[in-house]
Design a protein around this nucleic acid. Structure first.
Length: 655
RNA sequence: GCCCCCGUAGCUCAGGGGAUAGAGCAUCGGUUUCCUAAACCGGUUGUCGCAGGUUCGAAUCCUGCCGGGGGCGCCA
């Protein structure tokens, strides 16, 4: 039962009989929501104020006629009108009790299936498999998996697809590295570290040459230009007009800042070059491979053209790379229905471009094939002047394939917000190509920051590896597990440490509003207090402890029909919170924001904590109350654990 | 130059037209013959960046400004 939805539908009915109302009921009905404050009841309807405006009547009068027409007497006490025209609703205690009892008996914990299931493709994680996964992959992976699970639980048909980067320049780099630098013994014994070494080595050499031949000279040019600009701005005479002078001063200041940044970048480039030059092995290597940048692109092109040597190498390189990312997914407990990477679409790309040309959407410009879109300064390039395709081409081919294969109603792309422009162009092009029935939705997210407020990096400036990140979290979580008196074996402590550690990272990510950046902090995410995985897991374990003490199992408590009694405010508040799981999941699905669920779980745990403090369960004053409270505990722990499970977080029996 | 996002308590963050702006941390005080005290309860803490505007009502929407971040034809 979705209480909120139910009450809203009653309001929709009532609205029809309000004198003079003709418009769309939905926006008005959406003004029914959970109360901002418990003293205003459980739900509040803010409909009367805007209606008053629309209909030219006093809001309180509208509220009165709405209440008159409203039939909620089976669910709620008599509605109250307050303030300028708020309608406050209080759910009847016996209804909460009845619904809690029913939810406890239901597999779905009282969450209804959606009336009209949709087919939803969720595209998330999508790493480049040739490079080790790093901190930047957490958000997409964790948010995408959580959204998929929530949608699935609500009854939608969900297809998760990991659109891995298995065909791009990174493989050209590894192929080049293989041909020149491979250590065959190492590759045989420990393929992934060897491939990573090759990737990093080639990458470093490319960056070295790029910095030396184009980066640094370009930088010098920009610095010269900027220096000139600063000098010019500095010599502008004061006009005496305060406003103008202030604006000039600001410009100068900005130019100076920009110059300073350029110089810092220049220094770092110089250092990067010097590091190679001064290295006894890398220095000579760099001199031997001056054309490495171009050569790598050629290796990539040869791979794409079907060159047998490079295809064989790709066939050999790919499996260990996939095994490596699968190992990471195993640790994270993340799975996919499909893993259709870039290579899967390779032979469909030419057709994509041909179709665009045939439809008159793509035109040639400066040798490249471009889609010029209204409202965008730059075109979306679908074929480079050298004939190679780009990720926009692959993405278009992917949409076509998904439409053909699965006929989805929605495709979600859980991808960094910095790719917003790309998706705007991609979606616009897709719609013009005839895919205008599907809802294409970029689900963007912000950056993971270090404690300094800058993107989370190692001290040397490289991305933090995902494996190491998980190790560290589990190590730190081990201290929590070691502090437990209830965990006896080392094996048990290690398992709990893993669940707490991995859970901490996932939960911290999901608990933040997806669209904002957040600061990564082990201390905060592993805290035993506050909105953290550790606290939620502890809450679950505490509830489970009661069943051990009571000598019944959770399952028994859930399945045995019993009357729920909600005589104290703590019990009533807990009961109501338990019923709001359904509307919470609905909300997560509406705007694709898992943090609504973490907020809900934290509040549910708080309601439980209040209950735990005030209402003895095992030593309740009567057997009826004991059974009722045990059922409340059972539904609480089921709801908490289900919520965590949907977020991809494992709970623990004891900790 | 153009476009997008952000600015909320000392810190980390919720809230994104609705009633007196919330939580955790920090800080101060309290709770243990009682189901997990790694817990709980209470106190303190605000120019919601600034200034205008729209509205019955603005942290929320609009405009301008200040500060920070990101993106912008051949990477993904």
């Amino acid at each position: 039962m979705n209480l909120l939805a139910e009450i809203r539908s009653r309001f929709a009915t009532a609205l029809a009989s309000v004198d003079g109302f003709t418009g769309d009921t939905r926006p008005i009905v959406e003004l029914v929501r959970p109360s901002s404050d418990a003293k205003f009841g459980d739900y509040q309807a803010n409909c009367a104020m805007p209606l008053g405006k629309q209909l030219g009547k006093p809001p309180r009068e509208i509220a009165a006629s709405l209440v008159e027409a409203l039939d909620v007497s089976d669910w709620c006490e008599t509605p109250e009108i307050a303030g300028p025209g708020f309608i406050n609703l209080r759910v009847k205690d016996e209804q909460i009790a009845r619904l809690v009892a029913r939810a406890a008996q239901s597999e779905r914990l009282g969450v209804p299936q959606v009336a009209t299931p949709q087919t939803v493709v969720v595209d998330y994680s999508s790493p480049n498999v040739a490079k080790p996964m790093h901190v930047g992959h957490i958000r997409s992976t964790v948010i995408g998996a959580a959204l998929a699970e929530v949608l699935r639980f609500l009854g939608h048909r969900v297809i998760t697809d990991n659109h891995i980067g298995d065909w791009g320049t990174q493989f050209g780099m590894i192929i080049y590295g293989y041909k020149h630098f491979v250590d065959e013994v190492a590759l045989e014994k420990t393929p992934v570290p060897e491939l990573t070494r090759l990737y990093r080595l080639v990458n470093r050499l490319i960056e070295y040459h790029a910095a030396k031949t184009t980066g640094l000279p370009a930088m010098e040019e920009r610095i010269a230009g900027q220096t000139k600009l600063v000098a010019e701005l500095g010599s502008v005479p004061a006009t005496g007009d305060k406003k103008v002078d202030k604006k000039e001063a600001k410009k100068l200041h900005a130019a100076e800042n920009s110059l300073r940044e350029l110089k810092a970048d220049q220094t770092s480039l110089q250092n990067q070059i010097a590091a190679i030059d001064n290295d006894p092995t890398l220095g000579p290597l760099a001199q031997q491979h001056t054309g490495i940048g171009k050569a790598v692109l050629q290796e990539t092109a040869k791979l794409h053209e079907g060159d047998p040597t490079n295809r064989d190498l790709w066939q050999r390189i790919l499996p260990p790379c996939l095994e490596e990312i699968d190992a990471t997914y195993d640790r994270l407990g993340v799975t996919f229905d499909q893993t259709l990477g870039e290579s899967f679409y390779h032979d469909r790309l030419a057709k994509v471009v041909d179709d665009l040309v045939a439809r008159g959407l793509a035109t040639e410009s400066e040798g490249a094939m471009c889609v010029f879109l209204e409202g965008f300064d730059a075109p979306m390039i679908v074929r480079k002047k050298d004939g190679a395709f780009l990720y926009s081409t692959t993405d278009l081919a992917t949409i076509a394939y998904r439409m053909e294969e699965w006929q989805p109603d929605v495709i979600l792309y859980v991808v960094d917000y910095r790719q917003s422009l790309h998706f705007e162009q991609l979606f616009a092009t897709a719609r013009m190509s005839g895919f205008d029935q599907v809802e294409l939705q970029h689900v963007p997210f912000g950056t993971v920051l270090g404690e300094d407020g800058k993107p989370y990096k190692t001290r040397s400036g490289s991305a933090v590896g995902l494996g190491g990140l998980l190790d560290e979290a589990v190590d730190r979580a081990r201290a929590i597990a070691d502090g437990s008196k209830l965990l006896t074996t080392d094996q048990e402590r290690q398992q709990v440490a893993q669940r707490i550690g991995i859970g901490a990272i996932k939960y911290a990510d999901l608990a933040h509003n997806r669209t904002s950046d957040y600061v990564f902090s082990y201390d905060k995410m592993l805290a035993m207090n506050g909105n953290t995985a550790a606290y939620m897991q502890y809450s679950c374990a505490r509830v489970r402890g009661i069943f051990a003490k009571a000598g019944v199992t959770l399952e028994e408590s859930l399945s045995q029909a019993c009357e729920i009694k909600l005589d104290s405010t703590a019990e009533r508040a807990l009961g109501l919170a338990l019923l709001q799981f359904a509307e919470t999941l609905e909300r997560v699905a509406e705007d694709y924001r898992p943090n609504h669920l973490t907020t809900y779980l934290f509040e549910l745990a708080s309601r439980y904590s209040d209950f735990f403090q005030n209402c003895p369960v095992v030593k309740a004053e009567s057997t009826e109350i004991r059974a009722s409270r045990l059922a409340l505990c059972a539904l609480t722990v089921s709801t908490l654990e289900t919520g965590l499970r949907l977020l991809g977080i494992e709970s623990v029996e004891r900790m």
